[in-house]
Amino acid sequence: MNKIIKKEYFSEKVVKLVVEAPLIARSRKAGHFVIVRVGAKGERIPLTIASADKDKGTITLVVQAVGKSSSKLCALNEGDYITDVVGPLGQATHIEKVGTVVCCGGGVGVAPLLPIVEAFKKAGNRVITVLAARTKELIILEEQMKTNSDEVIIMTDDGSYGQKGLVTQGVEDVIKREKIDLCVTIGPAIMMKFVSLLTKKYNIPTVASLNTIMVDGTGMCGACRITVGGKTKFVCVDGPEFDAHQVDFDEMMMRLSSYKDME
């Protein structure tokens, strides 16, 4: 049982939760995630640890309500308890000073992108963040990203905000403009696939943080497995970050729809 200390709305469907979890706060690094369960019949869902405060013994989660379990979590209030929070899980992000980093995210990927943007900025990189969504209302965390990036580019499918176009267009404009040393992408598998194809064309090293379906998050079930460089990997223990150019995104997209008709 972990108490929610603070709740803040970033948008109608995106909340920030500060949660009591002293042990996790102490041992976590950027890129780690937790598995959370709400209620006795709750599902185990993975969420990135956006930030942590060792002294206060808290971790911060940024949650986007996309389905049943994430909505249940977003509906909790300050003072409520989350039934289970376990972690930190996964491999920490490999953060170093590489030069200029493009971080691009869309959909569910924007929340877990934030701690990575922060970490790369802190390490002294020039960080350009590209946020993409269908329409203006779905752009989230713009302010938080701006605080931690040298530049934020907004892309909307319908042109209602920022520039009209897909995330790949935004990224390609940057690539054509200046030298990019690393690209980090988190979002829907289809988006990561096209970002990966684009950066491969320009030979830019690219890291994708994969949001596969998980159950235990400790390597016990294999629900999170995907193919990287022709080999099966477990995202929860080997990842969640991988060399995007090696990831079989088509397979990942397919696997993500495993329970589509049941959720």
Partner: peptide, 15 residues
């Protein structure tokens, strides 16, 4: 082996 509907017994039984 990574097609939808194929899983380990650990996943199946854990669910």
């Amino acid at each position: 082996e990574n097609l939808i509907g194929i899983m380990s017994s650990n996943e199946y039984l854990t669910r």
